[in-house]
Design a protein around this nucleic acid. Structure first.
Length: 578
RNA sequence: UGGGGAUUGGUGUAACGGUAGCACAGCAGUCUCUGAAUCUGCUUGUCUAGGUUCGAAUCCUAGAUCCCCAGCCA
């Protein structure tokens, strides 16, 4: 059985029953959509997916799975200036990695450009839209404020024929970028600013990643989104809180198109939007703008840097898709703008990896341990359990010899209270090997310990004493002659502040970057078998944490290990308290 | 300030007029050939003030606080 990255079959959860699932269940019993449940995940391809998207993906695909419906993957690609095929590809890979399948239901808002245009003509013909010659700046100034109503554009009452002509010429490329817009004629005094004659089309002579140069006017998101759902027959259009204010606009567009007889054929209902709170995590930024800034500014090595909260970052870090899915479902769905403790995510991961990750021994900060009464040049193989949580994982052999490496932290010349590890005169167990007792230490001219000497008890072979003698501590080790040397990358939170955006006035969240978020250990000593570890494989290094073979920088026979997450460490907590 | 949302322990989340429960974190134990995992116990909460009711986290009234909206971004 491989522990490499896998594509899990998502199991429909036993209906946790959040408020959205309640709405869907109610609609089903009411027969509102004749039992149909059609959702969609609608990313803009302008960045990589992050853990917040996972929440939305699990919600939308989960709802479809639980209700025998379907979930569409639709790219809302209405702004060619920011979008790119690279993002389309990564988004599809990430959704698949999470274990979801959109089947044949892959769509693009750009597929609907013609339909959207036809509808714009329809609204214009009936006087519900007009071409406005105001500049962006003028429109902004005339929009009014939160408390002041806006002023009507001088072009608001342009004759229909003129509007139609101008719209046509906009489309034909006769005007320069930004010189004109098509606007909906709604209400410049509306307390909802989204209804103050919103822009439907802007002119942009830009190359679109799918439509090329076919169009030089592009629909605004607000003009495209609701109708895209409608065209696809989406029943439950689920989005985040900030779009709550836009819902009346989506409904205005759809209602008016329907009134004018423009409803899509075979769709006897309209999509209904429900909003929920987006995910926030401690020690993490999840704004696309900021993630892009981290990448472009070189603060991380790329979108898939293992410290990034992107799905590709988590994947490379060693997270399992199951743990992310489980986490995403466990945080619940509400309208409360909450912040989830990152330890919840890490806990979901440990939970999963504890059950499936094979155990290995690895020494990160080596200290030589010499067993004085062990024969020179001799070695022997000892049996070690691969995974105590999973008997079917079997056992393996580990070579033992006179000179070993142990962890520097596992020896103290003067032990603090409650220290259970190696210390002069004390006996500990070398895991799966022998009891050893420390007899002396060697130091260099600076007083730094270079070697620890001990004697072993041959009768304790395997790790148990026939006389029933107990030891307080068990430490891990690697045979010096047999050790595989490897680079190990220790990752910590990217930000040192729980809320990275909590900064003194005028300062950037970047000042909260954690300078120790990556610590590279270049000469870790690992169990020999690890030398052949394959890309993406995950292990528990006993007493350290979970590690995976980096899929980007590892070379065959020369793996690099990423620490995915450390094991809980009550000893270091105890020690820090002192 | 106009509009739209929201408010239950430290952090999240459930309870839909009838015992405030669960998870994570924290604390104290248990167990252990991983100071991990396991197992046990504990601490901590209904934003405020009134009202309705036998009974209110839940209904009503008033207030407080927080989030979102003034892109030709999504």
């Amino acid at each position: 059985m491989s522990n490499a990255p896998s594509n899990p079959a998502p199991t429909p959860t036993p209906a946790p029953g959040d408020f959205i699932r309640e709405i869907v269940a109610q609609d089903n019993t009411d027969g509102k959509y004749a039992g149909r449940v059609i959702t969609r995940f609608p990313p803009e391809p302008n960045g990589y997916l992050h853990i917040g998207h996972a929440k939305s993906i699990c919600l939308n695909f989960g709802l479809a799975l639980e209700n025998n419906g379907r979930c569409h993957l639709r790219f809302d690609d209405t702004n060619p200036a920011k979008e790119d095929q690279e993002y389309v590809d990564s988004i599809m890979a990430d959704v698949r990695w999470l274990g979801f399948n959109w089947g044949k239901h892959l769509y693009y808002a750009s597929d609907y450009f013609q339909q959207l245009y036809d509808w714009a003509v329809l609204l214009t013909k009936s006087g519900l839209a007009y071409v406005c010659d105001l500049s962006a700046d003028q429109i902004s100034r005339m929009r009014g404020s939160l408390t002041q109503p806006g002023a009507p554009s001088p072009y608001r009452d342009r004759p229909v024929d003129e509007n139609l002509d101008l719209l046509n010429r906009m489309r034909n490329g006769e005007f320069s970028d930004g010189s004109r817009t098509l606007r909906a004629k709604i209400d410049m005094a509306s307390p909802n600013l989204n209804l103050r004659d919103p822009v439907m089309y802007r002119i942009a002579h830009a190359e679109h990643h799918r439509t090329g140069s076919k169009w030089c006017i592009y629909p605004m998101y607000d003009w495209a989104h609701g109708q895209s759902d409608w065209i696809e027959g989406v029943t439950h259009s689920i989005c985040t809180l900030e779009f709550e204010n836009h819902r009346p606009l989506y409904n205005w567009f759809i209602d008016n198109i329907a009134k004018l007889g423009g409803a899509p054929q075979n769709i006897p209902y309209q999509p209904n939007q429900t909003e929920f709170a987006r995910l926030n995590l401690t020690y993490t930024v999840l704004s696309k703008r900021k993630l892009l800034e981290l990448v472009k500014g070189g603060h991380v090595s790329g979108w898939d840097d293992p410290r990034m909260p992107t799905l590709s970052g988590f994947r490379r870090r060693g997270y399992t898709p199951e743990s992310i899915g489980h986490f995403a479902r466990s945080v619940g769905v509400t309208k409360f703008d909450s912040v989830i403790d990152i330890s919840r995510l890490e806990n979901a991961l440990r939970d999963d990896l504890n059950k499936r990750a094979p155990r290995r021994m690895g020494v990160l900060n080596p200290l030589k341990l010499v067993i004085d009464n062990y024969p020179d040049g001799q070695s022997e193989d000892l049996d070690a359990v691969n995974n105590p949580e999973d008997p079917s994982a079997g056992t393996r052999k580990i070579p033992f010899s006179k000179v070993l490496y142990i962890e520097q932290d596992d020896f103290r010349e003067v032990p603090p209270p409650k220290y259970h590890r190696l210390t002069p005169g004390q006996e500990v167990r070398l895991r799966y090997a022998f009891f050893v007792r420390c007899t002396s230490v060697s130091k260099d001219e600076n007083g730094v310990i270079t070697e620890v000497h001990c004697t072993y008890d041959p009768a304790t072979r395997g790790g148990d004493s026939p006389d029933g003698r107990k030891v307080k501590g068990t430490i891990h080790w690697v045979s010096a002659d047999h050790a595989a040397e490897a680079e190990v990358r220790l990752y910590d939170h990217l930000f040192k502040q729980e809320d990275p955006n909590d900064v003194p006035d005028g300062q950037s969240y970047l000042t909260n970057l954690n300078p120790n978020s990556l610590v590279v250990i270049s000469n870790a000593k690992l169990e020999p078998s690890l030398k052949e570890a394959a890309n993406g494989e995950r292990y528990q290094f006993e007493r350290h944490g979970y590690f995976c073979v980096d899929m980007r920088d590892s070379k065959p026979g020369k793996p690099i290990f990423n620490r995915t997450v450390s094991l809980k460490d009550t000893w270091s907590k105890l020690e820090k308290k002192k």
